[in-house]
Amino acid sequence: MVTFDQFLSIGLALPRATERLTWETTVTLRVGEKIFAMGTPGSGEVTVKASKADQAELLAAEPEVYSSAPYVGRHGWVLVKLAGADPEELRDLLADAWRSVAPKKLVREYEASGPTPETL
């Protein structure tokens, strides 16, 4: 199980990731103006940017945890039920989402630094 605060900690640990309240209740995680994840505290769910291939794989492997996100699912975004999420899998999913929106130079620097996963 992952809490919303843990989700935020994982996402905000990525380089230049910031948090912004959007649509009055939704916390978005961004690099610059590009959103890579979002959620509403207390909802028990978050939405994470993914490729369509990764989305299909996650939905097939764990349909009780992952589903196609409302509105943006057709673009690959995944709705994650935090109560069933594996912390390491969520960490990897957030890192991939971050990579998809971060500047290429920043991604290269991050990968060259050999980041080690934090423990939850």
Results as ranks from 00 to 15, higher is better:
1 M>S: 14
1 M>N: 11
1 M>L: 15
3 T>L: 02
4 F>E: 08
5 D>T: 08
6 Q>H: 09
7 F>K: 02
11 G>C: 04
12 L>R: 08
12 L>V: 04
12 L>P: 06
13 A>N: 09
17 A>F: 11
18 T>V: 12
18 T>S: 13
20 R>S: 13
21 L>S: 07
23 W>V: 02
25 T>S: 15
25 T>G: 07
27 V>E: 12
29 L>H: 12
29 L>S: 04
29 L>P: 05
32 G>P: 09
34 K>A: 06
35 I>Q: 06
36 F>I: 01
36 F>V: 00
37 A>K: 00
37 A>G: 05
38 M>Y: 09
38 M>L: 15
39 G>R: 00
40 T>A: 11
41 P>Y: 04
42 G>M: 09
42 G>Y: 13
43 S>G: 06
44 G>V: 11
44 G>R: 01
45 E>Y: 15
46 V>E: 11
46 V>R: 03
47 T>Y: 14
52 K>N: 13
53 A>Y: 08
56 A>L: 11
56 A>Y: 08
56 A>H: 04
57 E>V: 10
57 E>A: 15
58 L>F: 12
59 L>Q: 11
60 A>D: 10
63 P>K: 06
64 E>K: 14
65 V>W: 08
66 Y>T: 01
67 S>Y: 12
68 S>H: 12
68 S>T: 14
68 S>K: 13
68 S>P: 09
70 P>K: 07
70 P>L: 08
74 R>S: 06
74 R>Y: 09
75 H>N: 13
75 H>E: 15
77 W>G: 03
77 W>V: 05
79 L>V: 05
79 L>H: 09
80 V>P: 01
82 L>E: 01
85 A>D: 05
86 D>M: 04
87 P>E: 06
88 E>F: 11
88 E>Q: 11
91 R>S: 10
91 R>T: 09
92 D>P: 00
92 D>K: 12
92 D>V: 10
92 D>H: 11
93 L>K: 02
93 L>P: 03
94 L>S: 06
94 L>A: 04
94 L>R: 06
95 A>P: 04
97 A>Y: 06
98 W>S: 01
99 R>L: 03
100 S>R: 14
100 S>E: 10
100 S>C: 03
105 K>P: 02
107 V>Y: 01
108 R>K: 15
109 E>Q: 14
110 Y>P: 05
111 E>C: 03
113 S>A: 14
114 G>S: 04
115 P>G: 00
116 T>N: 12
118 E>P: 10
119 T>W: 15
119 T>C: 13
120 L>C: 15
